[in-house]
């Protein structure tokens, strides 16, 4: 089984707090497919630095407000 990246994120919470923005709308904003947004939210994929910045910019927050290092997953 593929190892999950040790990076947690709050994309789903931020999306829902952002007027319930849909996964498709976020995907369009950052230039990826909806499945990639789903994979990011489920922690199955860590986006590139560029996409990470794009996500943070969509929500108007800093990068570390969206992504954080997951110590438990890392150990």
């Amino acid at each position: 089984m593929a190892k999950r990246p040790p990076i947690a994120n709050r994309v789903k919470q931020l999306r829902e707090a952002h007027d319930g923005m849909s996964q498709a709308a976020l995907a369009k904003e950052i230039g990826v497919t909806r499945q990639t947004v789903i994979a990011i939210e489920q922690g199955r994929y860590s986006p590139s630095l560029e996409s990470a910045f794009r996500i943070a910019r969509v929500f108007g927050v800093g990068l570390e407000d969206v992504f954080s290092w997951d110590e438990a997953q890392d150990s």
Partner: peptide, 11 residues
């Protein structure tokens, strides 16, 4: 439309 979308970074 999904069929016409270019391959993204994850794909």
């Amino acid at each position: 439309q999904e069929a016409n979308a270019p391959v993204d970074e994850r794909e």
